[in-house]
Design a protein around this nucleic acid. Structure first.
Length: 569
RNA sequence: UGGGCUGUCGUUCAAUUGGCAGGACGGCGGAUUCUGGCUCCGCUAAUCUAGGUUCGAGUCCUAGCAGCCCAGCCA
């Protein structure tokens, strides 16, 4: 079993592969595991999956697919106090949505409770496990410290028969929580604290979401995970870096039991700027009411990202781009945004919506007249088809698309300036109307009838093209504009006396009433569109027929904002 | 101060295992454009430190330094 320590690729490699795929390639070449590849994604159903899990899902299912192998979905449900069916359901949905296909191999650690129990008796019989009757506090005291060895429990040398009897009575429910535990008998002086007689079973008179009240003793992670992997014939058990120390116990358990032994491999978990990714903190955000539930579009949860409008393809692409390695890293949120735009650009239909409207009256356009324009849903992909958009005398345009005193390089509407209304007409601003406070309330413009469709026969060019919506036909819709949940890159690094909650971005959600083109009236929740020149949006489930609600997935790149910022500075 | 893991452009992942340090994101500049979007082109910028071996070191050796993980009856 010496080769189970072979975490470093040392046989052969294909350049460009990550260290996990490199190792698997070598294993396949050498015939280890009969050249099979079988992975698993093993979440604990105690919270919603987040983008860090997405990395693991893409890795495990991806590796299986690439090597012609299999990947199981296994719920690591050994702690009845924290787990629930709600989480099982959400996890199943999220994995499926992300493209993970476990082909019916949906397993639960709790499926193996009886086998796990039998193996525990096997360890007792072999003199490799004992029932300890120390309290939790006493066990901690006996464990020693990082620099000092531990001391053995006075119960460590109980006889096999006594251990067996006690353990069976633990199972039978004769003891209260905490009265006894089953421990592996390894080495209280090990420099690896994990190996100082780790707890294998604890007593918990608790209802389990799947096994009900069948058990009152529950196995611990280290003991359960390796045996579960073994039972399922897993070849490569991929987990995150914090389990490196646990690998020694993983190997010890399987070797001591003498059963099939997969290879544990550890990679660095994902960190993302402007977000927190620990379950504890995400739960705190939900329970503290800082967000509106696990699927709040600001959450880095898979359900949150989905509701925000991120596509599974974008998430898969993101996971492929960040790579897999063993060095701790923090990925730039802008890479995620890039991946969102990359895919949405290809698949999202274009529509027009005005987020911050200002009224425009076309003075020379006939009162009461309505024209309709047929506009393509996607300028580069005719397969998306087209829709009809009404045009009339009174319109809305974006407030930011007009400047009374335009700065240099400003290409949009200004007094005396002609611009193109997307797919419609050229208009020129003639007059600015203001209220008593000097706020602009209306723009009086004229249009050139000869530019119908947004194009001039005489070859005349306009510098700007802006989007618009006919006021009389506009759909008044709620639009939610999301920004980073946190205002600092690393909310985890809180200064003295503060926590990550103190770094929440007060402007992470801004709700506006936008003016949308009428074609959007009955859009189905989950539909993703691009509001031209603004960004990508996704119809939210809070919307109703005729009254849609949109979430901003991500804004378009805005090079004008950069220019303006630079000129201003 | 025990043990383990990790150090390469601003970020992230590579480097045919000792042979010109490359890609992507970001940033900057340009072309194109009925979305200041998309697309295209160009530029920018890195081997933790100090020694050593070698014709040649990101890669091997020695000694340091820095970061992360571990003392749950959590996973």
């Amino acid at each position: 079993m010496s080769d189970h320590n072979a975490n470093e690729p040392d046989r052969k490699a294909e350049p460009g592969l990550d260290f996990i795929r490199t190792l698997i390639t070598a294993d396949n070449a050498s015939g280890r595991f009969d050249s099979r590849v079988h992975t698993r994604f093993p979440p604990e159903p105690n919270g919603y999956l987040h983008i860090g899990h997405a990395k693991s899902i893409c890795l495990n299912f991806g590796v299986a697919r690439e090597f012609g192998g299999k990947c199981n979905l296994r719920f690591d449900d050994t702690n009845p106090l924290k787990e629930s069916q709600e989480y099982v359901d959400s996890i199943r949905e999220d994995v499926k949505w992300l493209g993970g296909d476990w082909e019916g191999r949906e397993f639960y650690a709790s499926d193996y409770f009886e086998q796990l129990y039998q193996h525990a008796e096997q360890l007792i019989l072999a003199g490799k496990a004992y029932v300890d009757s120390l309290s939790a506090d006493e066990i901690r005291e006996h464990r020693g410290t990082l620099t000092a060895p531990g001391t053995e429990s006075p119960y460590r040398n109980r006889g096999v028969e006594e251990n067996l009897d006690l353990f069976r009575r633990m199972r039978a429910g004769e003891f209260k929580d905490g009265e006894h535990v089953l421990r592996a008998k390894i080495d209280m002086a090990s420099p690896n604290v994990v190996m100082r007689d780790p707890t294998l079973y604890r007593i918990r008179h608790a209802h389990h979401h799947r096994t009900g009240n069948a058990w009152c003793i529950y196995p611990m992670y280290d003991y359960t995970h390796c045996i579960s992997d073994s039972i399922e014939g897993i070849t490569h058990s991929i987990c995150t870096l914090e389990f490196v120390n646990n690998r020694e116990l993983y190997d010890w358990t399987l070797d001591t039991l003498g059963i099939y032994h997969p290879q544990q491999l550890e990679f660095a978990r994902l960190n993302l700027t402007y977000t927190v990714l620990s379950k504890r903190k995400l739960i705190q955000l939900v329970e503290g009411g800082h967000v509106n539930g696990w699927d709040d579009p600001r959450m880095p949860t898979i359900s949150g990202l989905r509701r925000r409008g991120v596509t599974p393809e974008a998430l898969q692409d993101f996971c492929a781009r960040i790579g897999v390695a063993k060095a701790d890293s923090v990925v730039d949120f802008s890479l995620l945004e890039f991946c969102m735009r990359e895919h949405l650009n290809a698949v999202a239909p274009r529509v027009m919506g005005v987020l911050d409207p200002i009224k425009v009256v076309i003075e020379n356009y006939p009162d009461g007249q309505v024209e309709t324009f047929d506009m393509p849903y996607h300028p580069e992909d005719a397969s998306h088809g087209s829709r009809t958009v009404p045009f009339s005398k009174v319109l809305y345009i974006e407030r930011d698309d007009f400047r009374e005193d335009p700065p240099k390089k400003y290409h949009r509407l200004a007094p005396g300036v002609e611009v193109r209304l997307r797919y419609a007409y050229y208009i020129t601003c003639r007059e600015v109307v203001k209220d008593a406070d000097g706020n602009i309330t209306e723009l009086r413009c004229t249009y050139d009838p000869a530019t119908k469709g947004g194009w001039s026969q005489d070859g005349r060019k306009v510098k700007g093209t802006i989007h618009w919506v006919s006021a009389a036909h506009a759909l008044h819709a709620e639009v939610r504009l999301y920004e980073h949940l946190f205002s600092v890159e690393n909310p985890n690094a809180a200064e003295e006396g503060k926590t990550f909650v103190d770094y929440l971005n007060p402007d992470s959600l801004k709700t506006v009433t936008a003016m949308l083109e009428p074609a959007l009236a009955d859009v189905a929740p989950g539909t993703r569109v691009q509001f031209e020149r603004i960004g990508y949006f996704c119809a939210d489930k809070d919307g109703t027929p005729g009254k849609p609600v949109f979430n901003r997935t991500v804004g378009l790149r805005d090079s004008w904002a950069k220019i303006e910022k630079k000129e201003g500075a």
